[in-house]
Design a protein around this nucleic acid. Structure first.
Lengths: 188, 188
DNA sequence: TCTTCGGCAGAACGATCGTGCTTTTATTGT
DNA sequence: ACAATAAAAGCACGATCGTTCTGCCGAAGA
């Protein structure tokens, strides 16, 4: 049920996730579904939590099994690409891309706050893995892990736009080239 | 009226632009406002057109007055930053950031198509200015203008997220550092 | 001055929204 | 087998959605 909700959100955003429509997709009555959560906000919260867990399960945790430093970064990158528009993807692409533009001007609230947490967590993971690459001697000691996290997020956002909105067949090549350039600049 | 509509969209997205709410903000009756457009789709089309023109007026055309190549790229970058979250910005930040995630999975239609056009136009402008920098001898001849457009769009998208969703005080510094790194890698 | 016409208001429509209430159906513990 | 509890259905509510229709009112053309 939350799975179907996450699919829906990836397609039409949080605002487009409607109780009636979700009930229909899950063969439940509107009130039957509504009973599980006791407000729409709690449904939104639950689906964000679900998507965060799905992301950790499909992208973060598997990637952390790769060797420290560059291989781990590459695996994080690869899996994020597949999460955006590949075999790990929800039907509408990256769940968080769908909602972050939607919530960036929303008044503070539990839903927005949770999204920010997840996003910061992800950035922190990227920075930490990069930092490990520094202490392993793979990357220059004066490289900036947080800057790397900022940069790589940009590459992936640009990829998402190119791939899904612009249908650019070169999107993945461009993303890989950008990723490679970032690493090249950081290597010893 | 379209001005207010564009503000609204920048805050709540295209789906959040509602006729009743817009009528209220413009002191018109619902049907009075509706009469100007003859459907909601035409309203959306009109507001996208308006925003595209606004973007050209505030960002593109002024920047094109700067000297060719790097200064022009810098001005494009500066103004885009101000358009995202500065004195050139709509209240909800970049209009197109608000709607591109929303429309990237929408069925093809005039609204989505127009957005894609504008986005491709913008990427083309960036690539062209960069290409001029190459033929001016400022950038390496083997640099890839389209790759540059892909990269810079990523930097700006990451900036938009950091600035507006994550409220990162270092967002602009990071964006400038990324921009500088991109140019450094391309300079002769 | 009279007529024509476009812009706007008012009211109403069917649909759908989120959310309560009440009742039926399933499941579980004893 | 029966009572207690949880889950789902059914129905209704007020609000808002996009849209249509009717009528007023002011401006422009004859």
């Amino acid at each position: 049920m939350l799975d179907e909700a996450a699919r829906q959100v990836s397609l039409v955003g949080l605002g487009g996730l409607t109780i009636g429509l979700l009930a229909e997709k899950t063969n439940l009555s509107k009130s039957g579904l509504f009973g599980h959560f006791r407000s729409k906000e709690q449904l939104q919260l639950a689906v964000i939590e679900w998507a965060g867990e799905l992301f950790a399960e499909r992208v973060i945790r598997p990637a952390l099994k790769s060797p420290r430093g560059e291989p781990r970064l590459l695996e994080l990158f690869d899996r994020k690409i597949r999460w955006d528009d590949g075999d790990l993807a929800l039907p509408g692409g990256c769940f968080f891309a769908s909602i972050s533009a939607e919530l960036d001007d929303a008044p503070p609230g539990p839903v927005r706050d949770r999204l920010v947490e997840i996003e910061l967590d992800y950035a922190d993971t990227l920075a930490t893995v990069f930092r490990t690459g520094i202490s392993e001697g793979q990357f220059r000691a004066d490289a900036d892990p947080e800057q790397y996290a900022f940069d790589i997020r940009g590459v992936l956002m640009s990829y998402h736009l190119a791939s899904r909105l612009l249908a650019d067949p070169k999107a993945e090549d461009r993303a890989r080239a950008a990723f490679e350039a970032l690493l090249r600049a950081a290597r010893i």
